[in-house]
Nucleic acid binder design. Structure first.
Lengths: 333, 333
DNA sequence: TTGTACGCGTTATCAG
DNA sequence: CTGATAACGCGTACAA
């Protein structure tokens, strides 16, 4: 374990001073080319590597963006992280991750902890209460919220109004008049938005909309099976594809034909949605782009500008075999 | 944006010195309780928060563990990250993430970059060549490899020998004598291990094993459909569940009955595997535990001990409906 | 028990 | 153009 080579070692070896070495290495403007070459040579020879931590410490805020997600294993967040990471990295920043386990209190602790090491924060699908969010925004670093609208912060979100309209219009176009929504986590803002926009659109389209609570995983969808079956809906919209696939699975296990007896559609269109039986009609959204836009907002803000207007991403309906014409259900159990 | 309160501000306000404040706050041994109380009170009142970066800078190595994964959206890695993150956090460390995009060169760059900010490194399913791995291990911080065996580093991996045996024994028990393996990414060590152990076990069980190349996503499985169908195998083992589900989907689209005409089994048993049609027979492994064990090895090592012996996790076969008795296929196209 | 002074590794300021 | 030197915010010998 060789001793770490420091700036002063290079200076000594090059027969000059630390300032010169620093300048030579950082490409300062006023310095003789020969010295630069010499210093660089010596540095290379000695295997010198600047201590990035010391640099950033000296320079000010850390080039790190702290991110919180409710659950690392949720494919939606994985892709957001992917996009955010790529952009941030391209901008010279690194990602410090925090997982709240869907727990608002934990999320607040995370924010409090991450901010100590971060120059900016991204809250992905924050589960914080309104009050909690206020506290988070009071941090001395810029904060962007993904899928959560809020004042005085960056906002990047899916346009759920458009999303819900696409879904319901598709279903009414197939003749469905009675739709059931299987919801997501109670703390999820986007679940609230989905419900709100669905209700509103349902009213406009004269569709009867019922709602039940759910969650975000396949289990939640599977467990909702009996309730769904006993409802009078001819079509179901699920919080996301995992729930949708779980529900499809229950229907299959219980001999309910999809889509002839029941249509199922969903939000997100994660890759696996194309491979369910039947393939799931879903709303494609650019999740990675959510992360990229979050980073864009951050850079602008870090550059001294005010927060840009919220970025709203309009999803696209991918129609697959899980939705079909409305028909009276053959069997009721 | 209030000015940041520093140690010296607290000292001034408390009418004492920085060292006293520092000691009081850090619970030093020799200091009068009253002073401690007083300092704490003042600090609290001023809303003092230690600059963690300065602390860590002063104290030495950063309390951060850098992690590389080939792809953030691969569910396998998500769960590893989840486990690692939870453990590391419990140990006072944070996770700095890096995604190599399945590119060995990029992974090496990542290692080189992350090490500047990390007190330890975890390479998850490293795609590095042997030489690249050598370089990575030459870093001045301890490195743990997940799903990759190597000398002079921590190693945590799935026991693929046991895994492959479980799979093949299950299939031979159903009468299959001709099995096809649909492989994963060429740079994947674990794909290599799966092949190696499958071959070896196939020989022992007198099973004919064929292999084709694939990848890690549903598309790879779907695209392998025609080749699989035209092979003479009665059972297929796929690199992972995503590939398996993609393959199932192709079989369905093309009217091939699973498992009556073809059995499909796979590695990993990600949650969605239970919801495919038919549900996928797969090898359950504790992915989160891989992360936890990696952290355990790291703490031991950071504590000054030698690297512990590699941790091998034995998977468990979850038999579902995608595997059944071998039968001559009804149709060949 | 407390305070002073120094150092962590770097960059920036200010003389020269 | 270059070299001392002062920070950045904190912990801790050493001295008192």
């Amino acid at each position: 374990m060789a001793e770490r080579v420091r700036l002063i070692d290079v200076a000594r070896e090059a027969g000059t001073s630390v300032s010169t070495v620093s300048r030579a290495l950082n490409g300062s403007d006023l310095i003789s080319p020969e010295v630069v070459a010499h210093v660089r040579a010596v540095a290379g020879q000695l295997g010198y590597r600047a201590d990035k931590r010391a640099q950033e410490f000296k320079l000010g805020r850390p080039l790190t963006v702290g991110v919180t997600v409710p659950d690392l294993t949720n494919p939606f967040f994985s892709e957001v992280l992917k996009g955010l990471n790529a952009s941030a990295r391209a901008g010279g920043y690194r990602l410090l991750i925090g997982e709240s386990s869907e727990d608002p209190a934990e999320e607040l602790r995370l924010v409090d902890e991450l901010v100590d090491y971060s120059g900016a924060l991204v809250l992905c699908s924050s589960r914080l209460t309104r009050a909690g969010l206020e506290k988070a925004l009071a941090q001395p670093v810029p904060v962007v919220c993904i899928n959560r609208t809020v004042k005085n912060a960056g906002v990047v979100a899916i346009d759920y109004r458009a999303a819900s309209r696409l879904l319901l219009e598709h279903l009414t176009g197939l003749g469905h008049r009675r739709v059931l929504y299987v919801g997501g986590p109670a703390t999820s803002w986007s679940d609230g938005e989905r419900r709100r926009t669905l209700r509103r659109t349902a009213r406009a389209l004269d569709v009867t909309l019922d709602e039940i609570d759910g969650g975000w995983s396949g289990n939640h969808g599977y467990d909702a099976g009996p309730t769904v079956l006993h409802s009078r809906a001819t079509a179901v919209i699920t919080f996301n594809d995992l729930v949708g696939i779980g529900l499809l699975s229950w229907m299959y296990d219980n001999g309910v034909e999809v889509p002839s007896e029941l249509s199922v559609a969903s939000y997100d269109d994660i890759p696996i949605a194309a491979y369910s039986r039947p393939p799931l009609t879903s709303l494609r959204n650019e999740r990675a782009k959510l992360g990229e836009l979050a980073w864009e907002q951050l850079t602008k803000r870090l550059g001294g500008a005010d927060w840009p207007a919220p970025d709203l991403l309009t999803p696209e309906l991918v129609v697959r075999a899980s939705t079909g014409p409305a028909r009276r259900r053959a069997r009721i159990r």
